[in-house]
Amino acid sequence: MGDIRASTVLPARREEIILHTTDGLELVGELALPPDGRPPAATLVCLHPLPTAEGMMDSHVLRKASYRLPALADVAVLRFNTRGTSSARGTSQGEFGGGETERYDVAAALEYVEYHDLPRPWLLGWSFGTELALKWGRDPLVAGLLLLSPPLHRASDADLDAWGADGRPVVALVPEHDDYLRPAEARARFKRIPQAEVVAVDGAKHLWVGEPYVRIVLNEIVRRVAPAAHPLPTESPDA
């Protein structure tokens, strides 16, 4: 057994993928599936932070989810670069659309999930990615939303009201020291979604820097999407 550290990469079946949008773009991504042919219990579709501020599919919490959750929780993790975004995987076609034309990117990811029969997709948004989830994620396929550091800049009250009427689960993880939206204000704003859970994380900041905060985030995710795997172990024979 070894401790799971910030740099740990656990076994998974990893596949480079291309998503195709209805407005004619190709988006680069990766799908990580549980190892040894095990079927996934659920799927995370990751929507990364703001690309004009270095957000991408490799932003560290999303990358660590893909490195750990397939092995530890049998959760499939789909990450991709939204239009015009670059990472080590490559650059997606198109240009940053301010959160508007990215609606086609979210739809392309969900189309891929449906075509490949990936089960119980949850949208996992972080910062800018939470805006995409709230604005464009109400596809019938989606099981619920997991929102990390939601700024609620682009998502309107009408978007929140629509999720409130929809009834599907919405979970917001809000850092105590967030740069944009802190827990007290988040609770007030999310009252428009009666079923929303706002989880305040003491000591955390917008970027979730530090292994203790990453573990909190991943455990809160797994608690919702694959509860049989909660709590996640801190050691693994593969670490």
Rank of each mutant, 00 (worst) to 15 (best):
E95W: 12
S92F: 02
P237M: 07
A108D: 04
Y104H: 13
V45Y: 01
L110R: 04
H153T: 11
C46L: 05
V201E: 05
A143P: 12
S66Q: 09
S7M: 10
F96H: 14
F190I: 00
P175A: 13
Q195I: 08
A229R: 01
R120W: 05
D74R: 13
P212R: 01
L110K: 04
T8W: 00
S59A: 15
R224C: 11
G84N: 04
H206N: 06
H48S: 09
T130K: 14
T52S: 15
L181E: 00
L44C: 08
E131T: 05
S66D: 03
A12M: 13
W136A: 05
T85S: 09
R138T: 14
R192P: 00
V45I: 15
S86T: 12
I4P: 02
A108M: 02
D139G: 15
G99M: 08
L132S: 06
L25G: 07
L19R: 02
G94H: 01
W208Y: 08
P11D: 12
V171H: 07
G29S: 03
H230V: 08
R192Q: 04
S236Q: 14
L33M: 06
S59K: 07
G24Y: 07
A76K: 00
V222E: 05
A6G: 09
H116A: 04
W136N: 04
I18M: 13
D3L: 08
P227V: 06
W126L: 04
F190W: 03
E54D: 12
E102F: 12
A196D: 02
F190K: 00
V225D: 03
G129C: 03
P183C: 06
L31V: 02
A71M: 06
G97F: 12
A107V: 05
V28I: 13
D117Q: 11
P140N: 11
A6V: 14
E211S: 10
R63V: 07
H153V: 14
R63W: 05
F128V: 07
G210S: 08
L78F: 06
D36N: 09
A53K: 12
M56S: 10
E102A: 10
I221C: 03
R103P: 05
L47Q: 07
D23W: 14
P35S: 11
P51C: 06
T82A: 11
R63A: 12
S66V: 00
P39A: 15
L160D: 08
D166H: 05
L110T: 07
D3W: 13
N81V: 05
W126P: 02
D3C: 15
P119V: 15
Q195H: 13
R79M: 01
H60L: 11
A188D: 13
S92R: 15
W126I: 03
P194Y: 06
L25P: 03
S236R: 10
S236A: 10
P11R: 13
G37P: 10
L50T: 11
H48V: 06
A73E: 01
V61E: 00
V222K: 02
V113R: 02
S127E: 06
L147F: 07
W208F: 09
E131S: 09
R224Q: 12
A108W: 00
R38D: 09
E26Y: 11
S149N: 07
A6K: 08
L160G: 11
G167D: 07
A188F: 13
S149K: 01
